[in-house]
């Protein structure tokens, strides 16, 4: 690690006031700290969001569920009353990671193989920051790239309640991140299918959504051709295999929901 300054503000306003160039927000540190230890990142200052109480907690409402950015994966796993979301959080990393890592950090990081982006996009969530509210469809831009501006702070993520939803993940055997993860949600506005792990960035599979909206069944998934074009091709899985997994996992998610 290179030398850096460390601040731990108690309120969001204090945090915003501290922000400057070459500074990084620190949440659970599960991505940021390893990167710094490997000397791949060199922030001059870390602003630790850990003491800001208002950023933490699960807030259920009739038609939605708001989760503070600093809520850990473990808390979401035990407290979120959207079962697919709780189950997704329970499948992230290991207990240490789940008790440190946060939803805000994961979403802001937008790792192509991370789990949360699939839920955020699949459930059509909204990301509230200190500056604005961003729709999931506009948030995930590209590999490790989001709509967040420099030093924009995620305050919470709000999930509309689906009629039903399921997340099925095929683990990378080594890292246990998603080789492919598919989040299927039945919502008032039709079925949404969000795919993580398979491409450079989480994406919605429109053909699967159309097929499932008109006929919510595994057979309906079979009618869709999932193209391998543009999918990731790496040491662990070819694009072709990932395309197969998208279909298989979508069918399994549909079956879990009861299609």
């Amino acid at each position: 690690m290179y030398h850096f300054e460390y601040q731990r503000p108690a309120t969001l306003d204090e945090a915003v006031a501290l922000l400057k160039e070459d500074c990084k927000l620190l949440a659970g540190g599960q991505t940021l700290l390893p990167t710094m230890k490997q000397r791949l990142a060199q922030p001059e200052m870390l602003v630790d969001l850990g003491a800001i109480e208002t950023l933490r907690g699960v807030c259920p409402d009739d038609d939605k569920l708001a989760i503070g950015a600093m809520t850990t994966h473990a808390e979401v796993a035990s407290k979120a009353d959207i079962p697919a979301l709780a189950c997704l959080a329970a499948g992230i990393g290991d207990p240490q990671v789940r008790n440190r890592g946060t939803i805000g950090g994961s979403v802001a990081n937008n790792d192509p193989a991370a789990d949360y982006p699939a839920a955020v996009l699949g459930l059509n969530a909204q990301i509230t920051t200190n500056k604005r509210v961003i729709a999931a469809d506009d948030f995930f831009v590209d590999l490790f790239e989001t709509a967040l501006e420099e030093n924009e702070i995620i305050i919470n993520v709000t999930f509309p309640r689906p009629q039903a939803a399921a997340y099925v993940k095929f683990d990378n055997p080594a890292s246990r991140y998603a080789i492919v993860g598919v989040f299927v949600a039945k919502t008032g506005g039709g079925v949404r299918v969000a795919v993580t792990g398979a491409g450079p960035c989480v994406f919605r599979h429109k053909d699967l959504e159309t097929a499932l909206t008109s006929n919510f069944s595994a057979q309906s998934v079979d009618t869709v051709t999932v193209s391998a074009t543009g999918l990731n091709n790496d040491l662990h899985a070819s694009a072709e295999y990932r395309a197969n997994l998208i279909k298989v996992l979508t069918k399994r998610a549909v079956a879990q929901i009861g299609g």
């Binding site: 055997p173 080594a174 890292s175 991140y177 040491l235 662990h236």
Partner: peptide, 29 residues
């Protein structure tokens, strides 16, 4: 089932240089 050391033929770099890519057996395997 799981472990495999892979060097990139093109660059000669070790591709499986961490637990992100080199897969050790775990209890649930």
């Amino acid at each position: 089932l799981l472990e495999n050391c892979v060097y990139d033929k093109e660059s000669g770099q070790l591709l499986t240089g961490s637990y992100m890519d080199y897969c050790m057996p775990r209890a649930d395997d």
